[in-house]
């Protein structure tokens, strides 16, 4: 008789400071865990790029935009960068949990939203430049 493998978390295997969803189920292939980490990092760098964009708008566009346009645009990029960073962490956790439970991976639903906000922001900048400087 083969002993049935207990898949629940035994107290001995418990790791301090790890959320439950990262302890339940079975350890995935370590390559997948590292791939998930790299995907998270790629999103974080995207978030940092948006932050850098927001900071640059505030720092370098004094002569191009009036104050309100500059502040709104800078804030949009900064907030978007913040949201992106937070969602990246959420997704990392959900993907890792899904791999442990051998479920299919969740779809990143915020991607279309981010694309839309970026497109709107880019169009706004273009129009703002045309309006203030002519064609």
């Amino acid at each position: 008789m083969q002993p049935v493998e207990d898949q629940s978390v035994s107290p001995a295997r418990r790791r301090k400071g790890l959320p439950r969803s990262l302890q339940e189920g079975q350890d995935p292939d370590p390559r997948f865990t590292l791939a998930n980490e790299r995907t998270f990092l790629a999103w974080i760098r995207t978030s940092l790029a948006l932050l850098a964009g927001g900071i640059a708008v505030e720092a370098f566009t004094q002569d191009i935009f009036d104050e309100t346009a500059r502040k709104v645009l800078g804030t949009t990029l900064l907030v978007l960068g913040g949201i992106l960073a937070a969602s990246a962490a959420g997704r990392w956790l959900r993907v890792e949990a899904a791999m442990r439970q051998k479920r299919s991976l969740p779809i990143p639903l915020w991607v279309p939203l981010i694309a839309l906000v970026c497109a709107v922001a880019a169009a706004t900048v273009l129009i703002a430049i045309w309006v203030t400087n002519g064609f």
Binding site: L18, P19, L22, I44, L51, E58, G74, A89
Partner: peptide, 30 residues
């Protein structure tokens, strides 16, 4: 050894850092 523990702490701190830069940036702007 075919076992990597997901680096939860690094992910959390990286996220906290990015979000706090965003937050401080918005405060700085307004």
């Amino acid at each position: 050894y075919e076992k990597v523990v997901a680096d939860f702490r690094a992910v959390v701190w990286m996220t906290v850092m990015a979000v706090s830069i965003a937050g401080l940036g918005v405060i700085g702007v307004w």
